[in-house]
Design a binder for these strands. Sequence first.
RNA 1: GGAGAGGUGGCCGAGUGGCUUAAGGCACAGGUUUGCUAAACCUGCGUAGGGUCACACCUACCGAGGGUUCGAAUCCCUCCCUCUCCGCCA
Length: 427
Amino acid sequence: MLDLAFIRENADRVREALAKRKSDAPIDTILQLDADRRAALVEVEGLKKERNEKSKTIGQLIQSGGDVQARKDEVKRIGARISEIEEKLESIESKLQDAMFEVPNLSHESVPVGDTEEANVEIATWGDKPEFDFEPLAHWDLGTNLGILDFERAAKIAGARFALYFGDGARLERALIQFMLDLHTGEHGYTETLPPFLVNRDALIGTGQLPKFEEDLFKTDGHDLFLIPTAEVPVTNIHADEILDAEQLPLAYCAYTPCFRSEAGSYGKDVRGLIRQHQFNKVELVRFAHPDHSYDELETLTRHAETVLERLELPYRRVVLCTGDTSFTSAKTYDLEVWLPAQRLYREISSCSNFEAFQARRAKIRYREAKGEKPRPLHTLNGSGLAVGRTLVAILENYQQADGSVVIPEVLRHYMGGRERITAQST
RNA sequence: GGAGAGGUGGCCGAGUGGCUUAAGGCACAGGUUUGCUAAACCUGCGUAGGGUCACACCUACCGAGGGUUCGAAUCCCUCCCUCUCCGCCA
């Protein structure tokens, strides 16, 4: 959510910035509602002041034995008028809030302007794409041949867009989770957290998934709880409704969680393999930063995610998303894309964003610069470090051998019982 | 699932209809006193919105939402959460 006072004072700048993001958010409506709201507030607060004063005199009159009926009737009329205006005020505020929830974040000035992903800009590439003297297989064939992935049985159990891992596949997924957590906690200074996988409505409003994107979520029946689409939701909300000291910043948390997404509207897209699942594992990085340093923090966080790819020796590139492709809540996003040789393309494996104060304002995550100063919203950031299923895909495809086996990246062997290679197993 | 207790400011805690603009204490900040430290004393110390050039000032907030009343932290209703015990359970 943007700062309403900022919109009021910079309406033209906001309109211009929203145009770059292809947003038709109702700024004029917001300005009108805001003016109406303040006018109604002044009126109702004046009346309340009058009521408070006159009510007090009734108490005094009763003590001294005077007749209070006329005065009571008068205050009752004021009360009725107050209710009337408050009703109006409530309606204005609810409309204003709805309109404010329609407004996306504004892009940072360094973000390239563009409408679609075509306008995203490659910042850097890393690593050498592997050369094969055979036709590399897609991971769904590799995994099925090795007996470590089973999509048919997963469909029997749960349906489309679910996977069943066996043996070394399951272990490799677990090894990746553990490797990533060990790296981020041991070398990058993150505090590991294991949050709830179900969250309430307030948490999702806080990070911006609600009210606009409810159809992307899995909701439980009979409880107002949702399966998390990303650990960003529970972890960012750790400090909701809190006021932190400036010296505490930055705070850095990492969390492994499964993620659940309905993938509504992606029918026919990535129907094969592990790329787009209703349930997938992710290690998430979340940082709470001082506003003056949040863009340095974004570079730091992105480097932490890139380090995972580099340790695994997976070729990737970093892309900065253009204004039109940046997600609703983000001010600036880097995508990390890993090379998938079977498809001969780079595929998103991490998304690292600075939300500035957008989430902090919604979730009321604030900090105090110094004692006695007013609390201000801080800046939140997060990034995948990394999407685990897609990392497993990248390993299978990049490390595959002519005989159908897969070499285990060196940093993972220690987690795989010291073995160097995954070979076919029976299931 | 059953029974009970409870939710008041950073913390403790008083408060069953108007003298509460939420007592008092702790913690914190500034000051006075003091050989130093400590203590004592004085002052300040919540959040949000409105308002102002800036102050002043105003309004709201005692878990949330309704209701009764001239007036609600206080009375009534609904809901949420926490704790204890029992049952069930990994």
